[in-house]
Design a protein around this nucleic acid. Structure first.
Lengths: 205, 205
DNA sequence: ATTATAAGCTAATTCAGATTAGCCGTCAAG
DNA sequence: CTTGACGGCTAATCTGAATTAGCTTATAAT
């Protein structure tokens, strides 16, 4: 990784732990292994570093959205995947989703940074809501909608069913972000949540 | 309200909007209607103001916990209240809870401040989780447990049922905190959420 | 009446932390 | 070979924001 990227990487780590205002260019430089003034060979200000992080993230998000949309517009392929979905598969789906969000380094740091900075301006607020509310609900709504059309789940209101699926996952995620030592507890609740979700929405005999 | 309290009040407002590090003692003083140096007649530093806010909150929380526990240990009284609970009552219960959390000025500002500062140290993280995860789940679990013992709701796992009730409320709350203009949308989802919750867990005929 | 304390003000002071100036070595392109 | 861009360094500089000094007035207690 070249210096320019390393700066973004270390800055993101620090911003996600302490917030933009509590990080000194000094610390960023130190972690990168250079002196503070050298940072300015790469970015014209501390703010510019922050902005570059946001830009990079928007870029990744666009790609991601693209990818998901492509998958989504091909229900046939996805339907295949979920053909013989059962409770255990659903648990795995949810748990994997949870673990990915929780452990993927970039995702996690970005989410935490955004959590801290979300009230600074409307743009950041919008990005947060998009990423951790609208997009997950829309994407997972699509997947769960497939399960409904396959007759594996039953509901008259897919969006609310999706909310019931995702909101607990989101909430447990925020707990682990602030108290990582509660991950085991959270995973246990996750599994119980999904099993109960399956019982509630699964076709009952 | 005396100056000493007004300082805490205005500081809390500012901290909840911009975070501790982005607020200048200047701004606090201005809102209080005094000059910055006069603040130091009341608190020995900016940090001391923050600490006083936390102390005051801990105080309020203890009182609150006390009150809730007292109610809770008298199931007879509460049971009376929920004797003829139906879906509309449940919607009202949830909506009121939501609106209280959302609009109560102190609660809202405190929650937003904690959202920003939660990663600064373990104490703040613990307080956040206590207030917005553990306590609500435990208190609402008690209430919903009553409804179960009354036969109004059916489940084998009250804690997870409580998670299903509360997590969507919490999530919609965080959306409104960052994008207040989405309150109507959130209220609509709230109502649908609870109606569906009632259908899922309500005694089915 | 006197005095002590509380609470305000203006005018410094301090200091940390972002940024700039200006120098140096490296290396690839011409 | 030499030149210029790149990326690093040290030593300033600049700024802004917290805090302190020291004065003043009002009020309440002795």
């Amino acid at each position: 990784m070249d210096t320019k990227h390393k700066i973004l990487d270390e800055a993101l780590t620090l911003f996600s732990e302490k917030g933009f205002a509590n990080v000194f260019v000094n610390e960023i430089a130190e972690r990168v292994g250079i002196k503070a003034p050298s940072l300015y060979k790469h970015y014209k200000s501390k703010q510019a570093i922050f902005d570059a992080i946001i830009d990079e993230m928007n870029h990744r998000f666009e790609q991601q959205a693209q990818a998901l949309t492509i998958d989504g517009t091909d229900p046939a392929a996805d339907a295949e995947v979920y053909k013989n979905m059962d409770e255990d598969h659903l648990v795995k789906l949810g748990t994997d989703l949870f673990k990915y969000y929780l452990h993927d380094s970039y995702t996690r740091r970005f989410r935490k940074m955004l959590t801290i900075e979300q009230f600074q301006d409307k743009d950041l607020a919008r990005v947060y809501s998009q990423q951790y509310f609208d997009m997950p609900l829309s994407y997972q709504g699509m997947l769960l909608g497939l399960l409904v059309s396959q007759g594996l789940l039953v509901t008259e209101n897919v969006p609310i069913m999706t909310l019931h699926f995702y909101a607990p996952i989101y909430m447990l995620l925020t707990v682990c972000d602030r108290e990582p030592e509660r991950e085991q507890e959270a995973l246990k609740l996750m599994e119980e949540h999904i099993r109960q979700f399956d019982k509630l929405y699964g076709r009952n005999f």
